[in-house]
Structure formats: structure tokens, C-alpha cells
Design a protein around this nucleic acid. Structure first.
Lengths: 238, 238
DNA sequence: TCCTAAAATTGGACTATACCAACACTAGCA
DNA sequence: TGCTAGTGTTGGTATAGTCCAATTTTAGGA
């Protein structure tokens, strides 16, 4: 079968939707694994696979001898949120202005982080706006071999999506470092703020599933306009 | 069998140790699932369970038709890091000064977040220091029913550990919101900084595995002394 | 009425097997 | 030499069952 969706994914989505639609409320007990297997005409192992992924994602929790229950927190796709998504979720219209784009030999610290010491790479400097108000100044470094031909692409779109969809690099994780400081002259100018508006500096290194470094991003956000929200989980199975 | 450790956990640990000891190096291919099953005298499904958890944790990655490989990044226990741990890792000596401790009826917004509207709770105001330099001012709200008898405990230790070890609440995740601002008078005084030193404001709500809210923390960090580091992963199976 | 022991239920661990889809490799053909 | 069509390997999905451990429910007895 072509384009066939695995059964356990279907069941998982079904449960996910039920939680989102509040048909299943927090604390509510799900039918037992054996019951779900019979009612859906599946084997118990298949049901377990669907439930296990939802447990890992934090949507459900299990108690041996008691049952499987809906977690109290609302489910959130806690992906690495792109700027565009974040802004849209808050009800603003995101846009992007590309200030500079070139291919360079990167500074040593950035080359080290990307594990590409002698490589040429693309560098882009972009302003990210919400309802046409400049919110962030973003500098991105992408090695040639990650995105060959990037210069022909539209950089006003989401870079996050571009790298995944067009160049086939699925972003799996990111290491970010966050701090606060005062903007320098260039940042003040582009963000149209004074030195006394503190900014959030977020440096992120993005990885694929096999641990390959994809790109490095140095971003500065107007702290009065932008808040960084994350959900951190402890490792499952530990 | 009493105190019996599941086979798949044993296999998982074995592989984990091999990676830590560099017997398995990044990029290296593991034996196939079928081979591992035979050599360890297990069924393939059991082997898959061990490997799956390591894939979820980011230690391994799979490629259909090719094999299972060791990820390039070093494995990190990506737990929610406590202040004490973070400071110690950077080579400083952490300490804590308790400024205020009382039981209060909390402000509405905090009661809402903790889903404990009419509950009394503990409130603690603490200074966190690194080598005796004040780095953070921290305000914590903990409902009575989470930590009964907290007033008898030593609050200069790690609250994170206290809640887990003494009160048996395993912290599973946290929602944090991060922004930058200028300190108010009280914060300036306690952190011994001027209004022009930007600070990182991090508000965190901590959860147990079943989504129960455990406590709320409002913290302000000297941005010139403290950096917030995180690793974010996209959801598995998405 | 209340407590306890047995039975039923539930998730946890594990085996054995089957077929599919993606990929690597190789023998053979042009 | 270079391409192609098989063929085998690998992970992906799914079934059907077994036994165990924790918990809840039920039934009986004091």
C-alpha cells in the first residue's frame, strides 16, 4: 500500500484529537490496553506502541494495576518553535527583511561549533518583524554542504522550514544559550530601540537526528516584545 | 524474581556504557537487531525496546535498510538543571541565603498556575550565590499538600532535590518563560547591582509525571554572571 | 459492620513469527 | 567499463500469545 499510514499512528492521532477536543479530560481513565485492542481490532502490542509514544510525549501516564490516564497538562507540540510560528500564535503577522547575504569564511568559534573548520559557509543577517515592528535581529551561519544553492532560495520565508523541506535536513534538537544584555549600536538601529531597552540574546546550534550540526543562529530579541517559552522534560526511561 | 531488572534495561545500559567508554564511537554501526537478538539470546522485539529508548534519548539513530548508529553528540543527561548543579559545573561554590519564609495565601495568578485556588502555601525568598557573589533572587511558591512540614527542613539546600528525595515528588518537566529586563529596587539591592545591569527573568512551573503542578518559581538572574543553557528536542514519533 | 483472602483487572516484560519497505551489494548484460 | 536487475540485509509494522506484578474488586467470614 502506497502512502499507507501505520495503524498505531492512526490510533495515536485519534487519542490526541480526543484530548484536544476535551472528549478525554485530564485525569480520565482510558479503556485498558486489552479493551482498546479488541474494540479497534488490533493486537495489544500495537495499542501499546501508540500509548507508549503518548506517554513519552507527556500526554498520558500509566499506573500499573490501575490503568492509563490523561495527563493534567494540555498537550503542546513542544517542537523547537520557529519565529514565524511563535509570532503567529500570539496573533501577529510575521515577516522578514534580509539585510545581508554572502558566503564567507566564518570566525573560528562558529566554525568550531559547526565542526566545519575550513569550510566556506553562507551568512545571512535578517530582521524579523511582527506586524511590521522589528522584534529580532538574526545572524545565521549555514555550511555550504548543508544547503547547496541557498543563494537561489527565498530567505524571507522560514529558514527552519526551508532546511527541513527543501534540503531534507530534519532538525531534531538544538542547544541554546540565553542571556540578557544591552543592544549595541547596530542592534539599536535595526530594532529601533535605545540602549536602555534590554534585549534577549539567544545563540542556538541546531542538530539533525544523527547529531550532525546543521546551522548556527545568533539572535537578539527586543525583550519588551518577545518572551522565550520552553518546556523541558527529564529523560524518559531513567 | 525479586528486584529483577528487565532484560531490555540491561541491554540498554550495556550499550550506554559502551558509548560512554568510547568502545562504541560516534557514527559507528551497531550489530543488526536480529544479530543482537541472537547473540544475547533475546527476541528481536526486546532488542528493539532497548534500542528505541536510546533512539528517543538521542544516543542512537536508525536508518531503514542501513542499520542503527551511534549519534555524534555526546550523551547528556538533559535534566532540568538546578542552580546548585549549574554553578558547580562552572567551577564555583554554590550557596543559599534564605531571606524570608512564611505561609501565605498566594496571589491569584500564582494560585491559578498551581491549580490550587483556595490553598495556603509556603513562600520562600532566597538569594543564590556563586563563590559568595549574589547571582540570583528567587521566589518560590509551594502548596502545603506538596511538602507538608517544609518549615522544618533546611532551605539552604537544593529545593529541587528536597522535593524529590524527601517528599517523593519526582519532577518530570517544567514550563519556563524567559525574558530580559532591568531590576527593580529590591532586586538591585539584593543582587548588589545598578539599574543598568540587565537581568534574566525566568518563571518556571514544575510538574510531576502525571501533570500535577508541584511548585512555581520566579527567579531573577544577574545576566553578566549567569547564562541559561538548554537542549531542546523535537517530539519523537512526529 | 468490618476486615481479610481470593479473584479479576491492568500494565510490564517477553517470545516467536510474519510480511513490508528501504537500501546495499553483486552478478551479469550491453 | 558502466548500467541494471536481482537478491539479501536492515529496520518498520503488526499479530498472537505467555507469564508476572501491582492494584482493585468481590465475596465470605468473624
Amino acid at each position: 500500500m502506497r502512502g499507507h499510514i501505520p495503524t498505531y499512528i492512526k490510533l495515536k492521532s485519534m487519542i490526541q484529537r480526543s484530548i484536544e477536543k476535551r472528549e478525554l479530560v485530564p485525569g480520565e481513565k482510558l479503556p485498558s490496553e486489552r479493551t482498546l485492542a479488541v474494540t479497534h481490532g488490533l493486537s495489544r502490542m500495537t495499542v501499546r506502541q501508540a500509548l507508549s509514544e503518548l506517554v513519552t510525549a507527556g500526554a498520558l501516564y500509566r499506573e500499573q494495576g490501575r490503568g492509563t490516564f490523561v495527563s493534567a497538562r494540555k498537550m503542546q507540540q513542544r517542537n523547537i518553535a520557529s519565529f514565524s510560528e511563535t509570532v503567529r500564535q500570539k496573533g501577529f503577522a510575521p515577516s522578514t527583511r534580509v539585510l545581508e547575504f554572502s558566503s564567507i569564511k566564518p570566525p573560528k568559534d562558529i566554525a568550531d561549533k559547526l565542526m566545519a573548520v575550513d569550510a566556506e559557509m553562507y551568512r545571512a543577517l535578517r530582521i524579523r518583524l511582527a506586524d511590521d515592528i522589528p522584534v529580532a535581529l538574526e545572524e545565521v551561519f549555514i555550511p555550504f554542504h548543508i544547503c547547496p544553492g541557498l543563494e537561489k532560495k527565498d530567505l524571507t520565508a522560514s529558514l527552519y522550514k526551508l532546511i527541513g523541506d527543501t534540503f531534507g535536513h530534519k532538525i531534531a534538537s538544538a542547544d541554546s544559550s540565553v542571556t540578557a544584555l544591552h543592544p549595541n549600536a547596530k542592534q539599536q538601529e535595526h530594532l529601533r530601540i535605545t540602549r536602555n531597552t534590554p534585549v534577549l540574546k539567544i545563540d542556538s546550534l541546531y542538530f539533525s537526528g544523527n547529531g550532525q550540526t546543521l546551522y548556527y543562529e545568533h539572535a537578539v530579541y527586543r525583550a519588551d516584545m518577545y518572551e522565550y517559552n520552553i518546556r523541558i522534560s527529564t529523560q524518559p526511561g531513567k
